[in-house]
Design a protein around this nucleic acid. Structure first.
Length: 275
DNA sequence: GCGAATGTTCGCTT
DNA sequence: CAAGCGAACATTCG
């Protein structure tokens, strides 16, 4: 489900709902979703702690605890987090529940069980990503020159580069297609065939599109709770992702699906011409 | 029944 | 040796 905009939506809701709450019990029903430490050590260490606040880096959500310690959550493909009254109906595939002192629960559910949680020392959140995280989309260091340096000497497809969390953190398969559509660049274009103007355009569009989809997905805690964080409100604004075969909303040409970097991709053959 | 799905990591090849 | 690619993970949905 989630790329940076959807993780940011969850972060904002949880910040409002759970900051200052005390965690009374931790119930890990599917031990393998806790990556570090062991599920039992995780439960013991988190029990009794107070939630200090929520942060985010790329697609990783950080739940800061009082004193030292951060619970890091990655939702991968199908994970979702929600807050509910204890005893309220549970989403299928709920793998972890934290009961708060006020009678509510923080729940983590994930049908495919790809999502993971870690408990790390505060400041050590980066250790959850093996290959390291690149710049946030709004980092002032994200310039055309930066992208030329990181993409311009490689024959790797530009879409695979945008999805590389070690270059820019938080872009995934939906938003790389959206960014490249607005940039007029075909997803399979090798980085070393892009022009300086292409890199400048991408450097502007990455923060612009990620910000746009973040704000279009914004919800109240009540709206978020209606579907346990599973429904995204920004999907009506997608211009290419999931729309293969439909007309391009700029030129009317049928959008084309292909596979780039091992991922399904959609582009407009006219607005995004071959390099 | 088959194919594809919002992500990451690992292992093998080039 | 670094970069890049496909497979694996597990389940649902169209």
């Amino acid at each position: 489900m989630p790329e940076l905009p959807e993780v940011e939506t969850a972060r904002r809701v949880l910040e409002r709902e759970l900051s200052g709450s005390r965690i009374e019990t931790v119930d890990v029903r599917q031990p393998r979703i806790v990556a570090r430490p062991s599920a039992s050590a995780f439960g013991t260490a988190v029990t009794g702690r107070t939630v200090a606040g929520f942060g985010r880096r790329g697609k990783y959500l950080h739940m800061h605890l009082d004193g030292d310690g951060t619970v890091v959550v990655h939702l991968r493909m199908t994970g979702h987090l929600s807050v509910a009254e204890a005893g309220a109906p549970e989403a299928p595939h709920t793998h972890l529940c934290m009961a708060m002192a006020d009678g509510r629960e923080l729940r983590f559910a994930d049908p495919r069980r790809f999502g993971r949680l870690w408990l790390v020392a505060t400041g050590d959140e980066g250790s959850c990503c093996a290959s390291g995280l690149g710049l946030e989309p709004w980092d002032p260091r994200l310039t055309g020159g930066f992208l030329r340096e990181r993409l311009g000497r490689s024959s790797r497809a530009v879409k695979a580069c945008l999805n590389d969390q070690g270059i820019v953190a938080g872009i995934g398969n939906i938003y790389s297609d959206e960014i490249l559509f607005c940039a007029g660049i075909r997803p399979d274009t090798p980085g070393n065939l892009l022009s300086s103007a292409d890199f400048e355009r991408l450097a502007e569009l990455i923060p612009e599109r990620m910000g746009f989809f973040t704000e279009m997905n914004a919800v109240t805690p009540e709206e978020y709770a209606e579907d346990a964080g599973r429904r995204y409100r920004n999907t009506p604004y997608l211009r290419v992702y999931g729309r293969a075969g439909q007309p391009c909303d700029v030129c009317g040409t049928a959008l084309v699906r292909s596979v780039v970097g091992g991922r399904g991709s959609v582009h407009c053959p006219r607005c995004q011409p071959p390099a």
